[in-house]
Design a binder for these strands. Sequence first.
DNA 1: CGGTTGACCAAGT
DNA 2: GACTTGGCCAACC
Length: 98
Amino acid sequence: MNFNEKCYGVLSKVPKGKITTYKLIAEALNTKAYRAVGNAMNKNPYAPEVPCHRVVNTDGRVGGFASSTEKKIILLKKEGISIKNSRIQDMKRYLYRP
DNA sequence: CGGTTGACCAAGT
DNA sequence: GACTTGGCCAACC
């Protein structure tokens, strides 16, 4: 099992309507490679299976997305998360921590 | 094997 | 708030 698969494994546990952060994923894997986690998401071969759009930055920013940040925001809004100016509103409310 | 790159983070200005 | 700096770790030349 390589690093990326572990990331996908953790991410797939995030329920719909909630979000998590790159840092939390790294912590769940018992490592500090939040940056490498971002790389893993960018590749994301398990596209529909792994909801990579539910991963945001620790400071409440949405972060990036392979297609476009806008697309990510739309998806999150559809899940019931309010976003303003690429930032999560009330992130604590939606945050899912392992 | 070293250097660069990123969907990052924390602390400083 | 916004922007900069230094640090971090895996993947890829």
